[in-house]
Computed example of a mutant assay.
Amino acid sequence: MVRILTRSDVRSLISMDEVIDAVQKAHEDLTLGRADQPERHAARTPGTDAHLIPMTAALADGQAGGVKLLADVPANPARELPRQQSTIVLVNPENGVCEAFLDGGAITQYRTAAASAVATRCLARPDAHVLGLIGAGAQARSHLAAIAQVRPIDRVLVWSRTEASARAFRDAVADSGLNIELAGSPEQVVRGSDVLCTLTPAATPVVSGRWFGEGLHVNAVGAPPRRDHREIDSEGIARARVVVDSLDTALAESGAVSIALEEGAITVDHVRDELGEVLTGAKPGRRDDAQITLFNSVGVPIQDIATARILVDRARDKGIGIEISLPE
């Protein structure tokens, strides 16, 4: 039987601390050769500016395999739909049987923040306590929840293009007990932060590297997987020690990396370090308290499949979701 989990099902089952641990193990297993994640290619849909991106991964020890189909549709916000939508198919790799279909929206939100938390745990200063958020949407809320689990956050600076969005974020997290401050500009957020998360679908930079202070850790998250979109300028990429979630993915789909390379601000060697290599000790973490570090997060399917595995097991135990038989 195939289990179908809706977005509300996923939200009722998911736990940030579990996702953080699952994402970390998935990256470690990938680096150690225990899991697999082939290179992906986007399909451009004729007559539109949409991209369809199939993302395949297989977990260690035959736990699960699957595909996430991501649709990046720039025209959707005008239709009052999310720019990015996704669906995940989970498969038993031992027999090829489909186990589940899951809405990918909430999974993407959690696993993206979890990856930032994993990177923050191994790259940010241990005493980092001020979190900066550029963008105030759903990812801002999930990143606050995730980063607060790995660093002693007590103050949050947030900026959004609209003050209403920033105020809505502050109201949504009012019970966190943290000092939430609305900033007047991205520069104010960057200069005042120990850990910075950029969470906007920007096509052109909203953050300048000249604002980076000593010891800053950046999670560059929001830009869509397109080579002409970036939130952080080339100076920011060049000034930071960069760690990527996947080198192949960063070179193919990260505008921050691609444009910095095209402008001659960096070479490929500047972005060769992958998160899994840092986690397993194959590459070093933070060098010292003054170093600027940056995690370039495009998003990879090993994170989605690891999260989906947890959810499907829990849904089965709790009897949540709809079961259907596809062969009938």
Rank of each mutant, 00 (worst) to 15 (best):
V2E: 10
R3M: 13
T6A: 15
R7T: 14
D9F: 00
V10H: 04
S12K: 05
L13M: 07
D17M: 05
V23K: 05
V23D: 09
L30Q: 07
L30A: 08
L30P: 04
T31E: 14
G33W: 02
G33F: 05
G33P: 01
R34T: 11
D36W: 14
Q37G: 11
P38F: 06
P38W: 06
E39F: 07
A43D: 09
R44K: 14
P46L: 13
D49A: 11
A50F: 08
I53P: 00
M55N: 04
T56P: 03
L59F: 03
G62F: 05
V67T: 15
K68P: 06
N76L: 02
A78W: 10
L81P: 07
P82R: 06
Q84Y: 10
T87R: 10
I88Q: 12
L90S: 14
E99F: 11
E99D: 11
L102A: 13
G104R: 01
T108M: 02
T112C: 01
T112I: 04
A113D: 03
A115P: 01
A117V: 03
A124W: 08
A124L: 09
R125A: 13
P126L: 09
P126Q: 15
D127T: 14
L131H: 09
I134M: 04
G135E: 00
A136Y: 01
A138P: 06
R141A: 13
H143F: 11
H143W: 03
A148N: 14
A148V: 11
P152E: 05
P152M: 08
P152H: 05
R155Q: 13
L157P: 04
S160M: 00
S160G: 07
S160C: 01
R161E: 08
T162N: 07
T162S: 08
S165K: 06
R167W: 03
R167F: 05
A172M: 12
V173Y: 10
V173K: 10
D175L: 12
G177V: 13
G177K: 09
L178C: 12
P186C: 08
Q188S: 11
V190H: 02
R191L: 10
R191S: 09
G192R: 06
D194E: 08
L196Y: 05
C197T: 07
A202C: 08
V206C: 09
G213T: 15
G213E: 11
L216K: 00
D228W: 02
R230Y: 05
I232Y: 01
E235Q: 12
G236M: 12
V242F: 01
V243G: 07
L247I: 02
L247S: 00
D248M: 02
A252S: 07
S254W: 04
A256T: 15
V257Q: 02
S258I: 08
I259F: 00
I259P: 00
A260M: 04
L261A: 02
E263S: 01
E263L: 01
T267M: 09
V268T: 14
D269H: 07
H270A: 12
V271A: 03
L279Y: 00
T280L: 03
A282D: 14
G285W: 05
R287D: 10
T293W: 06
T293Y: 07
L294H: 04
F295G: 10
N296E: 15
N296L: 14
G299A: 14
G299E: 14
D304N: 05
D304Q: 00
A306G: 10
A306F: 00
I310Y: 03
D313A: 15
R314G: 08
R316M: 13
E323F: 13
I324W: 06
L326A: 13
L326N: 05
P327T: 09
